[in-house]
Design a protein around this nucleic acid. Structure first.
Length: 282
DNA sequence: AGTGGATCCTGAACGC
DNA sequence: TGCGTTCAGGATCCAC
């Protein structure tokens, strides 16, 4: 489940291994991953063929490769996507969806089991693809505006976990790191934004940064074989998790068993003692 | 405009 | 053994 640290590892891998190469061939093996591209699979392939990759950039969990045409190849890994650079002749991965032949030798491959991710060509999107203009900066971005984030959170009545997952407010935070940051901040995810003190939101933001920073230092999180970076190497961070996936395990602070509840059709893990559920009036 | 729930997708894990 | 159900979740879509 790639979150921002994993996507940054992928971006860095693309920068190192793909920038400077020309896409000599493009082969779409499944239409779904290019569903966002209005050109369709064949148009996607033809507009990319022969283009040179000039950079590798990222905002939140999106990455894009500006091209010598002024367009950009925009991508998102979804839940299970991978960008792999493989030698020519490497056996096809079971869920190989798109293959790019590179003039530098080797192939860039988009592999995605569940196909929540995808690729598309953004017209004139070299600087910031218009498709992702609504995505906020991430908290690692030097231009992230802390005061603006705090102010916006404190005007919203949604639960703080939903706000952390709102990519228009803050990008790059997924389910796992949201739970970890909330545990560190001792906040229940259902606490409404407008009822949090300014200092509570500031502290929560610092925990989000810390969790991301630790994951980035370790090369991203991996919980199963689904996430692999651009070279096919998995990152490991899972031993550091305090809340996510820890149902029934003792809280690291107070030893109360961690609980799991369903939220937005996914799981939320929290300590019922350190992170008390808000009362209806609070 | 903000809110909250549904939806997409595959395959591993689970229950009977 | 086999078949059906549940679960995982990022981003988008939609009704209110």
């Amino acid at each position: 489940m790639p979150e921002l640290p994993e996507v940054e590892v992928v971006r860095a891998g693309l920068e190192r291994h793909v920038v400077g190469a020309t896409l000599a061939s493009v082969e779409v093996l499944h239409p779904r991953p290019v569903r966002r591209d209005p050109r369709g699979p064949s148009g996607f392939a033809s507009v990319l063929t022969g283009r040179r990759v000039e950079a590798a950039r990222r905002r939140g969990k999106y990455f894009w490769l500006p091209l010598d045409s002024g367009d950009a190849l925009l991508g998102h890994l979804g839940m299970s996507g991978q960008m792999l650079v493989q030698p020519v002749g490497t056996a096809d991965e079971r869920h190989l969806r798109v293959r790019f032949g590179l003039t530098t030798g080797g192939e860039l491959r988009f592999v995605d089991q569940r196909m929540f991710g995808g690729l598309s060509v953004s017209t004139g999107g070299a600087d910031l693809p218009p498709e992702i203009e609504h995505i906020a900066r991430d908290p690692i971005d030097p231009e992230f505006d802390d005061d603006l984030f705090v102010a916006r959170v404190r005007k919203r009545t949604s639960g703080i976990k939903r706000l952390l997952l709102d990519q228009g407010l803050i990008s790059g935070v997924g389910n796992i790191y949201a739970d970890e940051a909330l545990w560190r901040a001792r906040l229940h995810g259902e606490r409404s934004g407008d009822r949090l003190k300014r200092a509570q939101v500031v502290e929560l933001l610092s925990h989000v940064r810390a969790v991301m920073g630790e994951a980035l230092a370790q090369g991203g999180t991996s919980f199963d074989a689904l996430y692999v970076n651009v070279n096919g190497e998995s990152g490991y961070f899972d031993r550091s998790l305090s809340a996510y996936g820890q149902e029934g395990e003792p809280c690291g602070r107070c030893a109360t068993p961690i609980r799991r509840i369903t939220f937005m059709n996914r799981s939320s893990y929290f300590c019922p003692r350190c992170q008390p559920k808000p009362r209806a009036s609070t």
